[in-house]
Amino acid sequence: MEDERIGHNVVRLIGRVSGEVVARELPSGDHLATFRLVVPRQDPAPGRPRVDTIDVACWSGRTRRVAGRLEEGVVVAVEGALRRRFFVAGAGRASRYEVEAQRLRRVPG
């Protein structure tokens, strides 16, 4: 059993879907759906709204199905964990942080 005093990795976000959801099959045969989530940032400077744009990855069948029904501008709640993904790009090896969705739901309104 892990000791939560050492640390834990839990992410909860509510934001708007930006762009379209991209579903693909990886060379390994795994299926993945990804999208970007725009989340308002709490900024102390009045009158200057800021946002964070966060990549969300949906690996489970359930989160892929929900993601597949999302459209741009829809507000969603995401619960999951922060992950660092490594890949090969044109300039060599690279990495990116994304949220791995464990639960995904539309937020009314």
Results as ranks from 00 to 15, higher is better:
Gly68Thr: 13
Arg105Ala: 09
Pro49Ile: 04
Leu82Gly: 03
Ala101Pro: 10
Ala89Glu: 10
Pro49Val: 02
Gly68Leu: 00
Val56Phe: 02
Arg103His: 15
Glu72Trp: 14
Ala81Asp: 04
Leu104Ser: 00
Gly90Met: 02
Val99Gln: 03
Gly92Trp: 02
Arg93Thr: 15
Phe87Gln: 13
Arg65Asp: 14
Tyr97Gly: 00
Gly61Ile: 00
Leu70Ser: 05
Arg85Cys: 01
Leu82Pro: 13
Arg62Asp: 12
Ala67Cys: 07
Thr53Val: 14
Gly90Glu: 07
Gly47Ile: 04
Gly90Leu: 01
Val66Gln: 09
Arg64Glu: 08
Gly47Asn: 01
Arg93Gly: 14
Val99Arg: 03
Arg83Met: 01
Leu104Pro: 11
Glu79Val: 09
Ser60Ile: 05
Arg64Gln: 00
Arg105Val: 14
Glu71Asn: 11
Gly47Val: 07
Cys58Tyr: 09
Trp59Phe: 15
Ala101Glu: 02
Phe87Gly: 06
Gly68Pro: 08
Ala81Asn: 12
Arg69Gly: 13
Thr53Ser: 09
Arg105Met: 12
Val99Lys: 03
Gln102Lys: 08
Val88Gln: 14
Arg105Lys: 05
Ala91Met: 01
Asp55Pro: 07
Pro46Gln: 03
Glu79His: 10
Arg62Cys: 10
Gly68Lys: 05
Gln102Cys: 13
Val78Leu: 11
Val56Trp: 05
Arg64Lys: 08
Glu98Lys: 01
Val76Lys: 06
Ala67Met: 15
Glu71Gln: 10
Ile54Pro: 08
Arg96His: 11
Val99Leu: 00
Ile54Ala: 10
Val51Asp: 05
Pro46Ile: 04
Arg69Val: 07
Asp55Gln: 10
Arg64Val: 13
